[in-house]
Design a protein around this nucleic acid. Structure first.
Lengths: 169, 169
DNA sequence: CAGCGGACGTTACAACATATCATTGATGGA
DNA sequence: TCCATCAATGATATGTTGTAACGTCCGCTG
């Protein structure tokens, strides 16, 4: 487990591995929901991907882990719960999901989605997200959920000169 | 045809109806592409929706207009061209498209998507979109296309107390 | 006319998402 | 104990969104 102090002077727990799952469980139970075997398996699978995973990716991973096929249906139910409970985040422009590394802390977030390798990095910038909310309000719009994502190429891929088609897994 | 001067001191042509189609045609031809009957029909259908339209919505509309079924395939090809040429914009969080009312002017844009009535309003704020680009660059990411959308409820729906399920067409 | 390239048609399929109803298992009350 | 109930999950089907592969048509040009 690690700590990090970011640009807007705001402490986040950046969890990984077992610590992340523990934090997720705590967070879900604090919301009055159960941490079931299935939910744990979905979370583990999700956290195991280094890139955003589709519901079907997760279904496959969970199915492999328990030696039994799992229907998309069940995965979507759990992902919806995770998103509602802030354990996972949906990347709209990729129709896919990522585990939230600090599930206890809810805020708008910004995704940088690499079109070469598919990796997503997640940054927070309250100044920007508040700016977006403010702009919406100025247009007499009641913002509920800002979606701020940037498609482009990560430092790694720019350095390597990689082209667009993302490799597997 | 009308003119508008917006917050960042920047003139846009805000086209509607025949003027919009004319501007779209000009814009496409200036890009070295042909303005075919099919493309005209797709643009007309797209511009005829008051809300973001899916490729299948458009396929249906175009099919009805010419009395002959049109495959999704063809629509996607044309929509991709339109997006690349800035005649249309894709609303990522809705998997749908809107006509660009000022096709000659290319910039990042911000969508406000009403979860009650489904309407989308499109605002521009260079300060914000530049901020998003800058944040990405600061993370050593080469931004190509910012996706800035806000889900929420438009002034109208807030006033009417409408709930989420969007009405048809 | 032959050859070429762009636009569109046709068919099939892959990927993403939801609807509906059945089953299971835990809990609590009569 | 027995049963009612409810949350979670399973099973099945279907709806929606997006691509792939290949064929045809047509206008252009040598």
């Amino acid at each position: 487990m690690g700590m990090a102090r970011n640009a807007h002077d705001h402490v986040h727990e950046m969890h990984r591995g077992a610590s992340l799952e523990h934090a997720a469980r705590e967070s879900l139970e604090k919301a009055g929901e159960q941490w079931t075997e299935m939910r744990a398996a979905v979370f583990t699978a999700l956290a195991g991907f280094s890139r955003p995973a589709s519901a079907y990716d997760i279904a496959e991973a969970v199915g492999a882990a328990r030696g039994r096929r799992v229907a998309a249906n069940s995965i979507y139910r759990i992902l919806d719960l995770f998103v509602a409970s802030n354990l996972a985040l949906r990347v709209e422009s990729a129709n896919a999901y990522v585990a939230n590394t600090h599930p206890g802390c809810r805020h708008d977030c910004i995704f940088l989605v690499c079109d070469s390798c598919g990796q997503v990095t997640h940054i927070d910038d309250e100044h920007l997200s508040n700016g977006v909310r403010a702009a919406a309000e100025k247009a007499r719009f009641a913002p509920v959920r800002p979606v701020i994502e940037v498609r482009g190429r990560c430092a790694n891929c720019v350095a390597k000169g990689e082209q667009s088609p993302p490799p597997q897994a």
